[in-house]
């Protein structure tokens, strides 16, 4: 159980896929202009990551090493298509906003990276912990980024057609926050923040990421 919790927590902090491992950034920067989009993107990633990690880990003994990547991709693509169809059916506004980024989860490095680096080598329960942890870590960062960008850039936060927070209409946000350069700058600050927090907790990023760099290096 302690292993389980430790694995789960790694995805949130010292091996956060976005601020530490820095994989799967393209979709993150693209969809983080709206809180709502980021929220559902996060949910989609948690679902796909957890389910595919679970299946791959359960089948790890029967998947021959030389064809593992095609099998991983079939499993991941199936779950992504399930998410895609379900969102299209039940959440059309979100589906329209996320657009091509939903099918692109298939090639998101976070998912394939975790399948290769973790799920293929660990037990089902640990793989689920890793999937949930990585997914939650991903969602947390993307939601914080999107909340900031939507609030500063457009002066309001809209969720399911409800205005949650709104500045007076006279507020004219700096447009750059919503564009890609702004995303990079803000994300840079978030990485700095994450480093500061991990170092303050006394866990040296260099030490702890030792084993993950080797694994990630192979995965990507």
């Amino acid at each position: 159980m302690t292993d389980w919790i430790a694995t789960f927590k790694r995805g949130l902090s010292i091996e956060n896929p976005l601020t530490i491992l820095m994989i799967g950034l393209c979709a993150t920067l693209a969809v983080s202009t709206k809180f709502e989009g980021a929220f559902f993107m996060g949910l989609a990633v948690i679902f796909v990551l957890t389910m595919s990690s679970m299946i791959i880990s359960a089948l790890r003994r029967v998947i021959p090493e030389q064809v593992r990547i095609p099998i991983f991709i079939v499993v991941i693509a199936s779950f992504v298509t399930i998410v895609d169809l379900t969102m299209h059916a039940f959440l059309p506004p979100v589906y329209n906003f996320l657009g091509v980024w939903i099918p692109l989860i298939v090639v998101n490095c976070v998912i394939l990276g975790r399948a290769e680096a973790f799920a293929y080598h660990n037990s089902v329960s640990l793989a689920v912990a890793d999937g949930l942890g990585m997914g939650t870590g991903y969602s947390f960062v993307i939601i914080v980024l999107a909340t900031f960008r939507e609030f500063v850039g457009s002066g309001e936060i809209v969720f399911m057609n409800q205005r949650i927070v709104a500045l007076p209409p006279s507020y004219q946000g700096p447009g750059i926050v919503l564009l890609f350069p702004g995303a990079f700058i803000i994300f840079g600050f978030m990485i700095a923040g994450a480093r500061w927090v991990t170092e303050r907790q006394g866990r040296r990023v260099v030490e702890t990421s030792k084993h993950c760099t080797i694994e990630e290096g192979r995965a990507l």
Partner: peptide, 15 residues
């Protein structure tokens, strides 16, 4: 850990 060997049959079958 013991894995399924990568023989042609096992590869085709698993995919």
């Amino acid at each position: 850990m013991d894995r399924a060997p990568s023989t042609p049959t096992s590869m085709v079958l698993s995919v």
